[in-house]
């Protein structure tokens, strides 16, 4: 009897080894593990054997049954895997074909720049404020220590609006967002930290580096104890975050009627890294912004006592920033709105 079990084992395993499809596997199962299989017959016939024989044969038969069942499951798994592999091959794709298009638009590079620059200042505690494009002479000039007939007005030739004058003078398109600073100082109590972004307009011929409509960002900080060191620190931090920490920054004397002392900040040329090139006119430096300690006249106009509060202010053109970062040579590209240009951002 034990011999017969051994024989079934040898035969069954041999045959299973040669099975290579599900149908044959099923037939094999019926033949060796089915109700009419010799092994089942042996197990059924156990009752007729002596106790000793029953023990030995029973153990051997059950062991074989388990072994064959496991072998069959294993075979089934391996057959299924093989089949999946074959079928998957039939479903192969050309990975170089373009994907099914999903819409992907782009945000305008100037919007991106405004958001990025504002975020840097917001993270330093500045609040974003706005103001009107059409402005009173008072906020654009007068309150900023630029009275009528001041030569600084010549550098900011204005577009005037065909509308009646008011108490605050004539209406014009603001020439700088510093006009919003004048409003901020009037409307808020210190401490103040604010940045103001928007379109500015100047009566000027346009070329690759000058537009008559462009964007500016201005900033103002007013608090007790603010010094020129803070001005330098905040603006250095801005330059570091926008242009990267390896870029050198320099501060020079400059003049703007609404600050005293006046400052100009330049960064090492992004093109030649300071060696001198066409972009930086061989100076190695690019002027990025104008700044200074807010003029006491301007603070007083805003109802702030300059003896009690320190304050710095700054202003810069927006378009120049992406021009330097991406190597754009013509400012007009931003407003030609050619999709072949805009899609690159």
């Amino acid at each position: 009897m034990l011999n017969e079990i051994e024989k079934i084992k040898t035969e069954a395993l041999k045959q299973l080894g040669g099975t290579d499809n599900a149908k044959d596997l099923e037939a094999w199962r019926v033949k060796y593990l089915g109700k009419k299989s010799p092994l089942t017959q042996i197990l059924r016939g156990l009752a007729g054997l002596s106790i000793e024989e029953r023990k030995a044969v029973g153990a051997a038969a059950n062991q074989l049954k388990n072994q064959l069942e496991n072998a069959s499951t294993e075979k089934e798994t391996s057959l299924r895997e093989a089949q999946l592999k074959t079928e998957a091959q039939k479903e192969s794709v050309d990975i170089s074909l373009p994907g099914r298009p999903y819409p992907a638009g782009h945000v305008h590079p100037i919007t991106k720049t405004i958001n990025e620059v504002s975020d840097i200042f917001v993270s330093m505690g500045f609040q974003i404020l706005g103001g009107p494009d059409v402005e009173w002479d008072y906020y654009n000039f007068e309150a900023l220590n630029i009275p009528d007939e001041h030569p600084a007005r010549d550098n900011m030739s204005s577009f005037w609006i065909d509308a009646p004058s008011g108490e605050k003078g004539k209406q014009l398109l603001r020439t700088h967002t510093t006009a919003i600073t004048a409003r901020t100082l009037e409307n808020y109590e210190p401490p103040i930290r604010a940045v103001e972004v928007g379109k500015c307009y100047r009566y000027e011929a346009t070329d690759a580096t000058h537009l008559n409509i462009f964007h500016h960002i201005d900033g103002i900080a007013v608090d007790k104890g603010i010094t020129m060191g803070d001005l330098k620190g905040v603006l250095y931090e801005f330059a570091r975050r926008y242009f990267g920490g390896e870029r050198k920054v320099r501060f020079r004397v400059d003049y703007f009627p609404f600050v005293e002392p006046g400052v100009e900040m330049a960064i090492e040329c992004t093109v030649c890294k300071g060696a001198g090139c066409r972009v930086c006119k061989n100076s190695g430096w690019l002027e990025i912004l104008g700044a200074g300690m807010t003029h006491p006249y301007v603070l007083r106009r805003g109802g702030i006592d300059p003896e009690e509060y320190g304050s710095f202010a700054f202003g810069m053109g927006i378009e120049r920033l992406p021009m330097l970062r991406y190597g754009i040579e013509d400012m007009r590209l931003f407003y030609n709105n050619d999709l072949r240009f805009l899609r690159q951002f």
Binding site: M124, I192, D223, D230, K232, F251, E260, P261, G262
Partner: peptide
Amino acid sequence: IEEDLIEEVARFYGYDKIPLTLLGQEIPRQ
């Protein structure tokens, strides 16, 4: 005014000599 003279002093010694500090005051209400 006094601020005009202060600029003269600052520029004579050089803006580069002024140390960088970050606003140390409390952040105003945003």
